[in-house]
């Protein structure tokens, strides 16, 4: 690892000033499960940082909170364990808890943060598809204040986000799920754990009586960024759920994604898995929507 100067700011403002001061030479550090690996392997997606700004002691970034009026707030510094174990997330935002519970091992979950997982901007980030399915917003803080961005617009490409060098992802806001909503996330990996998603699929269905009022499908590892599957969603909305409908929507989502071939799987294989998993996640989301 190249050497660097370590900063441990104790407020968000202080963290932002440090980033402002050091510009491209600085990188924010949260759990370290991605960044430290990249720094060790000299395989950072950016120049080796000469300043590391640790976000560990920034109180504004921590914690998970919820209110019936505002919905869910997940601090960027919340760990995957905190998200996976949060009673409110498990109850009301099931797919998000499921995504967090799949990130690496228990050790990884205890270290990795939601902000880190999103800012690393891997197409395979497990927390991203469920957050997209819940239409989460990124709250970004910089020298000129706060701005909000739909999470879909936050990801620009592999390893690229809408953050400027002096900005931080402070928190993720997730709207209150409407009554009658059920959600699910799962991923396909060759190994049962300690693996990177070859395909991840999140589904969220809101039922109005026997019809699907709103459908959200989001995919991981099959495009340059985690993505929604808008055509699949359109195929579902307003329809009565059935195996045939889900199969049709799964075909649509498999067609609209744009996977690449790499060591984890061919493009053809990934499309096939998108089809299988979309069907399964829709079925799971429906069952959950119906059982309240």
């Amino acid at each position: 690892m190249r050497t660097f100067e370590y900063h441990a700011p104790t407020s968000l403002n202080e963290a932002i000033s440090l980033l402002q001061e050091h510009g491209e030479a600085a990188r924010p550090l949260a759990g370290g499960t991605d960044l430290v690996v990249q720094m060790k392997e000299k395989a950072t997606k950016f120049a080796a940082p000469s300043h590391i700004v640790s976000l560990l002691r920034v109180p504004e970034l921590s914690g998970v909170s919820f209110s019936e009026s505002e919905g869910l707030r997940i601090g960027a510094g919340a760990t995957m364990s905190q998200v996976a174990d949060s009673p409110i997330i498990r109850e009301r935002y099931r797919a998000i808890a499921e995504g967090a519970a799949l990130v690496g091992s228990i050790q990884t979950m205890n270290m990795a943060t939601v902000g880190g997982n999103l800012c690393n901007a891997a197409p395979s980030a497990d927390i991203a598809p469920p957050l997209l399915a819940f239409e989460a917003e990124a709250v970004i803080v910089g020298p000129s204040g706060r701005r909000k961005l739909a999470l879909e617009e936050f990801f620009l490409g592999p390893g690229k986000t809408a953050l400027a060098a002096d900005e931080l992802l402070a928190e993720v806001r997730v709207p209150l799920p409407p009554p009658g909503m059920g959600s699910a996330y799962d991923r396909h990996t060759p190994r049962k754990q300690m693996d990177i998603a070859v395909v991840g699929v999140a589904a969220a269905l809101t039922m109005a009586g026997e019809r699907i009022e709103r459908a959200r499908v989001a995919l991981g590892a099959v495009a340059p960024t985690p993505v929604r599957a808008p055509q699949a969603e359109a195929a579902l909305e307003g329809q009565a759920p059935s195996d045939e409908l889900f199969a049709r929507a799964a075909d649509v989502s498999a067609a609209e994604c744009s996977p690449i071939a790499d060591l984890r799987g061919s493009a053809e294989f990934r499309r096939h898995i998108v089809r299988v998993m979309t069907k399964r996640m829709l079925r799971e989301a429906l069952d959950r929507a119906r059982s309240g």
């Binding site: 370590y6 550090l29 370290g32 392997e41 590391i52 640790s54 560990l56 690496g104 091992s105 205890n110």
Partner: peptide, 28 residues
């Protein structure tokens, strides 16, 4: 050295971590 094997596991503030991915300064 990349958090994949667990041989370096320690317990920090009651939580299990892979110490090869945590900077020493972070445990101040």
């Amino acid at each position: 050295g990349t958090g994949d094997c667990g041989a370096c596991s320690m317990i920090v503030d009651g939580r299990l971590v892979t110490s090869c991915l945590m900077l020493a300064t972070q445990v101040d």
